[in-house]
Write a protein that binds this DNA or RNA. Structure first.
Length: 347
DNA sequence: AAACCGTGGTG
DNA sequence: TCACCAAGGTT
């Protein structure tokens, strides 16, 4: 059994020397903690999202909305447009709901306990613990995918995920301490992302190698064990790009719930095993080829169609503004349509 | 509690 | 190529 105290000391020492510098992070041991607003915003953006993908969004958001009060005052559509491309759009809806809850119910100040944080929209067990530890120095058990992987390897846990979650959480709790809880959480995540990686872990650079049970087995990358995932079904659909004389594009606002909820979108058919061509308005529609997109739980082929037209119950938006406000699947379709149009015009 | 919910990088 | 993966939360 690895010695918890030695491992703790080794990882904190390693963090002091090797901590990544990130836009939302205070240096190791810093007396002035990061603004809770910035910690919270970064944690929400980083849910299931890589640092390189989230970082530019974080910079834009904090430049535009420096405080939680500024964010709370933003219009829904403006926030959804700013989130476009980051994915998991429920996060953006909950982000706004959370900012408004902090503004209206907490006097514009983030609560500093895990329980109160957990009650906020879009803040689950992980995010509540992370904000409590990093922004408020609370001894919270911060468990994310990195921590699960590190624990599963340190203790060579043979139970596969997701069944192993409770056990991994108990193991992680063994290390939680009132001494530097925020640094501890971030040290574990830096270790998980840079050293104890899912594939080809760098055990030769690992400060915890001396106590790692998985390393002793000779195949540390076997951990954590996982149960097989179901395969992704394939769906088909049509997307309709209607363009008026001023070069504006007809967009719709998608329903708040469900896939891409609350986002601007192109008019489309239903998506299923097969899709019927039924454009939203009559006109001389021309086929512009297709685009592929992969969502979490299905793959989609979208046949793109273009026509000239105007009026109707649409949000008429300049092509440039549309490209910036649309989720990626529709941005692909729009680019396909515009590229095809310019080829036709040259011919 | 299993299913749903995006995107881009990677080997 | 494509399956896997990333600082999860909600229903």
């Amino acid at each position: 059994m690895p010695d918890v105290l030695s491992l703790r000391a080794a990882l904190l020492d390693w963090y002091d020397a090797h901590a990544r510098s990130l836009p939302w992070r205070a240096p190791p041991g810093a007396k002035a903690k990061t603004d809770p607003y910035r910690v919270w915003l970064s944690e929400v953006m980083l849910q299931q999202t890589t640092v390189p993908h989230a970082a530019p969004y974080f910079e834009r958001f904090t430049a535009r909305w420096p405080t939680v009060g500024d964010l709370a005052a933003v219009e829904d559509a403006e926030l959804m447009a700013a989130w476009a491309g980051l994915g998991y759009y429920a996060r953006a809806r909950n982000l706004l709901a959370c900012a408004r809850a902090v503004a209206d119910e907490h006097g514009g100040v983030f609560p500093d306990t895990e329980a109160e944080l957990l009650a906020l929209p879009g803040v689950g067990a992980y995010t509540a613990a992370a904000v409590a530890a990093i922004a408020f120095d609370r001894a919270a058990n911060v468990v994310d995918g990195n921590v699960e992987r590190v624990m599963s390897r340190l203790f060579a846990v043979e139970t596969p995920l997701p069944a192993a979650r409770p056990e991994l959480r108990r193991l992680a709790a063994l290390f939680v301490d009132a001494h530097r809880p925020g640094d501890w959480a971030q040290a574990l995540m830096d270790l998980g992302s840079g050293v104890c990686r899912p594939r080809s872990p760098s055990c030769d650079r690992c400060p915890l190698a001396f106590g790692c049970e998985a390393l002793k087995t000779g195949t540390p990358e076997r951990y954590p064990l996982k149960t097989k995932k179901a395969e992704r079904p394939r769906r088909q659909g049509h997307a309709y790009v209607l363009i008026d004389g001023a070069g504006r594009v007809a967009l719709v606002r998608r329903p708040d719930k469900g896939l891409l909820g609350g986002m601007a979108g192109l008019p489309t058919s239903d998506w299923g095993a097969a899709a019927e061509f039924a454009p939203p308005v009559a006109g001389s529609w021309r086929a512009a080829g297709s685009v592929e997109h992969v969502f979490t739980h299905f793959s989609l082929t979208l046949e793109v169609h273009v026509a000239a037209g105007e009026g109707g119950d649409f949000l008429w938006t300049s092509a440039e503004q549309a490209a910036n406000a649309l989720p990626t699947v529709f941005r692909k379709a729009l680019e396909r349509a515009l590229g095809t149009l310019s080829r036709w015009e040259r011919a």
